[in-house]
Simulated scan of single mutants.
Amino acid sequence: MKVLLMEDDPVLSDILLDYLNESWDVDYAYDSKEVYVKLESNKYGLFIFDINVAGKSGLELLRELREFNNTTPAIIITAYTDTKHLEEAFEAGAHDYIKKPFELPELKVRIQNTQKLFNIHTKNEIQITPDISFLPEEKTLLKNKIQISLSTKDSAILLYFVRNTQRVISNDELIQNLWDFDHLPSDATIRSHIRTLRELIGKGKISTLRGSGYIYE
């Protein structure tokens, strides 16, 4: 399931991203403007919005999305403890509400419960493009609803790129994280894997920085 988190506290957002990415594919937005940018090219199974963010609040954003007939389940995070904001959250279209400070496992349980209530696909499905999704556990791409099997190494490389978007990744980093010491690949082998992935997901998704490595966008 792909999750969109909106949280403008940099410390809390880092903690949540590290924790939640262990179980789901989580995108991050600092404010409502970034949420709309993400929604242009991604579909999400769940929203997690903080009320108190810069600019438009989480509740204002959720009301707006509901007016546009976006029915994605939503969990609201807030430091407010009063009943008034709880009522406003549900009136705005939230499906659950969690108060700060909270334990990370509590948020995980609430997400899992929301998945059950709405019968959301529980597999770690990652949207690569509007027409291509990636199921890392099954080592499979779904491209225009056609299933394409990936090799173990191609799947591992793609998952590593997805988890490290917009960052230069060198051959050495890939080798260090994805290969055993006894079976180190050549640069040509890595180029071959990258070429295969580009053919499957589009050449523009993985850019080459000559002499430095690759960037997944």
Rank of each mutant, 00 (worst) to 15 (best):
V11L: 11
I98H: 03
E7T: 10
D82F: 05
Q127L: 07
I126H: 03
L104T: 09
G213T: 05
F90H: 07
A94R: 06
L200H: 05
I126E: 01
L184K: 15
I201L: 07
L62D: 02
T189V: 11
K108Y: 08
D182T: 15
N113V: 04
P136A: 10
S155L: 01
M1T: 15
I15L: 13
S149M: 13
P10I: 11
W24K: 02
P73N: 05
I76E: 11
E88I: 08
V37L: 09
F161Y: 10
S23R: 00
L39P: 11
Y44C: 05
K123E: 14
L61G: 03
G93C: 04
E34A: 13
M1P: 14
K56N: 07
T122I: 10
V26I: 10
E125Q: 09
S192G: 11
L5Q: 06
H193F: 13
H183P: 03
S207I: 12
L59P: 03
A79C: 11
Y28I: 03
E199S: 15
M1N: 12
N52S: 11
I175E: 09
V26H: 07
S170P: 06
N69W: 02
T114E: 12
D131H: 14
I48F: 06
V35C: 14
E103I: 12
I146A: 08
S192N: 14
N42D: 12
L46V: 07
G93M: 04
Y160E: 09
L20F: 08
